[in-house]
Lab assay of single mutants.
Amino acid sequence: MLYRITVRNADGEKLEIVVEMSEDEVRALAEELRKAGYEVRVEPIPEGEEP
């Protein structure tokens, strides 16, 4: 499935990426980023919607 991941650092800089991963993989990635001090938001992209 496609997911949009938005990551912000302490300075407020934002990075937005689209990935194709399983829900478990995305959850693990988000958890690791949060542990590293980043603010993370994950949104699933519905099938048929443009990323």
Rank of each mutant, 00 (worst) to 15 (best):
M1G: 13
M1C: 02
M1T: 11
L2N: 10
L2S: 12
L2M: 13
Y3E: 00
Y3M: 02
R4T: 04
R4E: 02
R4H: 07
I5T: 00
I5E: 00
T6R: 04
T6F: 08
V7R: 03
V7D: 00
V7F: 15
R8K: 13
R8N: 04
R8L: 07
N9Y: 04
A10Q: 09
A10K: 11
A10G: 12
A10L: 14
D11N: 15
D11M: 12
G12C: 15
G12R: 04
G12K: 05
E13G: 15
K14N: 06
L15H: 15
L15M: 09
L15Q: 15
L15A: 07
E16M: 07
E16K: 04
E16F: 14
I17Y: 08
I17H: 09
I17T: 10
V18K: 08
V18L: 13
V19A: 14
E20P: 03
E20R: 05
E20K: 06
M21V: 14
M21R: 04
S22A: 08
E23L: 13
E23Y: 07
E23V: 14
E23K: 10
D24T: 10
E25A: 14
E25D: 05
E25R: 04
V26Q: 01
V26D: 00
V26H: 00
R27M: 08
R27I: 11
A28D: 11
L29M: 13
L29T: 06
L29D: 00
A30R: 04
A30C: 02
A30N: 01
E31R: 04
E31V: 09
E32C: 08
L33P: 00
L33V: 02
L33S: 01
R34Y: 05
K35R: 07
K35V: 03
A36L: 04
G37K: 02
G37F: 13
G37P: 01
G37V: 01
Y38S: 10
E39R: 03
E39S: 10
E39I: 13
E39A: 07
V40P: 02
V40A: 03
V40F: 03
V40D: 00
R41I: 13
V42Q: 01
E43Y: 09
E43A: 10
P44N: 09
P44I: 10
P44R: 09
P44M: 12
I45T: 06
I45Q: 11
I45G: 05
I45D: 13
I45M: 12
E47W: 05
E47C: 06
G48H: 12
G48L: 14
E49N: 09
E49Y: 12
E49L: 14
E49P: 14
E50A: 12
E50I: 13
E50C: 03
P51S: 13
